[in-house]
Design a protein around this nucleic acid. Structure first.
Lengths: 242, 242
DNA sequence: GTCATCATGTAAGCCGTTACATGATTGC
DNA sequence: GCAATCATGTAACGGCTTACATGATGAC
């Protein structure tokens, strides 16, 4: 789940750990309290696995600039990329601070690799794995634009079923409880039922919209055949900023 | 948190582990998926600490009956309670099944001790400890009848503050997001805001009722002075089964 | 006879937190 | 000069899950 979030954020733009965490706090409820002791090792793991790579600290625009390294120290020129960036990082702490931004201790900026992109899609579309987990769902939904319309519908449907089940169970324990509920327990059960009901309505709204969109896209441009094989890789471009 | 739930359930009536878990599944959302690998060690810990004790398998009514043991094997009579019950358990598997109930493998029925009751109240009234944790709150609220009215209000107030904070943060990230939200992210944020708002309304309703109750109890019978010292131990008897 | 359910436990491992260690930069 | 913030990491520990081991009982 952590890896999914990290990859998803790095997909948008390269970042360093500290920054990554701020984004996490801001947007992803479940991972809002994630600690560095968790994040940094995760980044290290992902890097070791080749899903992300560090890039030399440079201003976001001039990505390919080697000015820094060349100005700071004489490069042998034939160093492997990894070694070069390592050396560069050590040598560039101050330069980076002056150039890039705020106070820093040789910050490492991570970038997602092709391999990482594959892993991301794999993780994103994989079923949640039993536990009801609201966090895992809302994380996936937050990245839903990277899923094919079909996969999005699957995700929402799975969630709808989970919630429907829960609603039923909650209803049962309110209707004929195996032991009497006191005021507080009853209040919790009732409020929980309402919340779940509201969640279901929300999901159903999203589902309805997905299905409508799917229909609309079929009708106007039914050209180029219906190639259902490419489902996962579709670069969905509908950032419907309504 | 687990210990709190276990003690709270055992406060109502003695139970064995398997049963305990069923109750947990039925009533306590957060602990609904608790596994035995977690529950049994917890029971063992609580027993070792003297917060619960096992009682010999007997029908709920005849608590003190020693008939079983005496009939099954010749007791030395001077065995320590622990040893005796251990031996008894081993020897009584079948008898217990016949007597007590359903199929069983020497089940151990746990009972809360005085020490356990103290621990329970301590745990119940202790502040949640930073993390927003909805589970911890609703667990406490489920046992709210064991708290003094004042402690209940404190619990609800703490929660209200947490939620108000969260509502504000959610509102901010919707109003001026540090990066544009897509349809899905926005939908999540909006739904989350609504849910939190509804939670706050719920809590405020509960708070209002608590304060009304407190007032009403002051007026009619303002006798026996206002002894605020005994707050925690008050045996609240208002199982308002409205 | 074998499957589901009841019942208790242990061991390995995952995933995360807290606490600690380090160090640069900015602002007071 | 000192605190706050930025920035990265390690080590120890905690709690819970999974998987495994064991065994009785009732139903089909």
């Amino acid at each position: 789940m952590l890896e999914l979030a990290v990859l998803g954020l790095l997909k948008e733009k390269p970042m360093h750990g500290y920054d990554l965490r701020k984004q996490l706090r801001a947007h992803f409820g479940p991972l809002a309290n994630l600690s560095f002791g968790s994040l940094y090792p995760a980044l290290a793991r992902l890097e070791a696995a080749g899903d992300v790579r560090t890039i030399s600290p440079s201003s976001p625009e001039a990505r390919g600039q080697r000015l820094l390294e060349r100005g700071a120290l004489p490069l042998t020129g034939s160093l492997g990329g990894e070694r070069a960036s390592l050396v560069a990082r050590r040598a560039t702490a101050k330069a980076a601070a002056a150039l890039g931004g705020r106070g820093t201790k040789a910050r490492k900026i991570y970038e997602i690799t092709d391999r990482g992109n594959e892993l991301f899609e794999e993780l994103l579309d994989a079923p949640e794995g039993k536990s009801d987990d609201a966090g895992s769902f809302s994380l996936r939904l937050a990245f839903a634009r990277h899923l094919s319309p079909q996969a999005r519908i699957r995700l929402l449907e799975r969630r709808r079923i989970q919630l429907t089940d829960r609603l039923q169970r909650t209803g049962l324990s309110l209707a004929r409880p195996d032991r009497a509920l006191d005021t507080y327990e009853r209040s919790i059960a009732e409020h929980s039922r309402e919340t779940v009901a509201s969640d279901i309505a929300w999901i159903e709204g999203l589902l309805a919209r997905e299905r409508r969109d799917l229909d609309e896209r079929k009708k106007p441009a039914s050209q180029e055949g219906n190639s259902p094989r490419t489902a996962y890789t579709t670069d969905v471009d509908e950032r419907t900023t309504t």
